[in-house]
Amino acid sequence: MQQIDIIKAPVAQYVEDFHSQFDEILSTKSEWLAEAIQRLNASTGKKVRPILVALIAGMLRGGDPPKESIDAAVLLELIHTATLIHDDVIDEASTRRGQPTLNVLFDNRVAILMGDFILSSALIGAIALGNLEVIQIVSSIGRELTEGEIRQFESAERLHLSEENYYDIIRQKTAVLFASCARIAAIMTGAGNKDKERLNKVGELLGMAFQIRDDIFDYYRSDVGKPTGNDLREGKVTLPLLYALSTVQGEAEETELLQLLSERPITETAVARLTDFALSHGGITYAEERLLDYIREAKQLLNLYPDSPYRTSLLALADYIGERNI
């Protein structure tokens, strides 16, 4: 049994219901869309966010998550899925987790429309919930994610090499969705403002750790579910390289590295040089330390809640996010 199966055991039935409902809301008359949805289900990972929603709702409720939390998890995962499709088009990615992307199987036009179809399905789901607080959160997620992605491209273009800027961007482009999952799970159980805020913070911390781990993957030459070196090819300077650059002593080396980053397109030779530099100057170790700081803080907040199978699984989920290899 895989680690994620053990983690989701307290909400196993919930996860099954989630998958059924996810497929149902995406039912379509289009053969292309039906094929795309089938392929998406095989390439979008372990569904960490829906599991997070279920476990938080179960912990707060002291039992099975309410049905409404399944509805909420579905619409949040729809938003995430739509952004993945659009990201693959923008990044010109050919594979995701070893599977061909939709823009390769079809073309960019069709892939964008498929992402829009899924995003529209999420908005329908949000309205069907009839909860204005949830609708407000969902309505703001797309804006935050999009702005975060645009800011990342801006930073790459302008070589804005600041750790503070990096954290701010990944908070906006990734952590906001994790935070929304946690907050909406609390809303669905009727939790008070204190719990909403605390669990929103837990979600944000886990999202920050999740993105840093993703960024670390980019520095290794192995199949971890996305093309390695892809961020560097786009000029995106993530935490491992940011830290390594901060250790540069000589002006000549700094000039050389900045010149490599400013090239468009960045050559494979430059990608290799920058990757090796990040690895040899402690970039991965530093990024992992920061990642674990976020995990530890999230677990400290979770430990404020009474012991239960749900809390135990949430703590294990935090560790999984920090240690995952895909």
Rank of each mutant, 00 (worst) to 15 (best):
V48A: 07
A82M: 03
P306F: 11
E154W: 10
G229Q: 09
T255W: 00
E234V: 14
D17R: 01
Q136T: 14
A82K: 06
V271T: 14
T28P: 04
G192W: 01
C181V: 14
K299C: 13
L113R: 07
T146R: 03
S308C: 08
I118P: 04
Q38F: 05
M59I: 11
T275R: 12
G322F: 11
S308K: 10
D195C: 02
G283Q: 03
Q259N: 15
W32L: 07
E268W: 08
M188E: 11
P309C: 10
R290V: 02
E251R: 13
H19D: 12
G235P: 06
E251C: 00
I4D: 08
K226V: 00
H160S: 15
G207W: 00
K236L: 04
D91M: 11
V202Y: 01
N230Y: 11
H19C: 03
M114G: 06
P10K: 07
L292S: 05
A126N: 14
V138P: 01
F22H: 08
S20M: 15
Y243G: 00
D5V: 08
D319Q: 09
S222R: 11
L40P: 05
E149C: 08
G62I: 01
D215N: 00
L119E: 14
E254Q: 13
L239T: 07
A185R: 00
L279T: 10
P100A: 07
K201A: 11
T174E: 10
Q21W: 08
Y243P: 00
L301W: 08
A191S: 13
R183L: 01
L302K: 15
K194G: 03
L52T: 12
Y294W: 06
D214H: 03
D107W: 01
A244T: 04
L161R: 02
L314K: 10
L279S: 02
N230C: 10
R39D: 10
A93F: 15
R221M: 07
R158H: 14
N131R: 10
N103W: 08
D218C: 03
V202N: 07
I266K: 02
A156F: 02
A111S: 12
P227S: 15
L206P: 05
K236N: 04
I56W: 07
T247S: 09
K173P: 03
D319N: 14
L60P: 00
E253I: 06
T101I: 06
L132R: 11
E24H: 12
Y219F: 10
A93N: 04
A72M: 10
L119R: 10
L292C: 00
Q21K: 05
D319A: 11
L245V: 01
D23L: 15
L33V: 12
F210C: 02
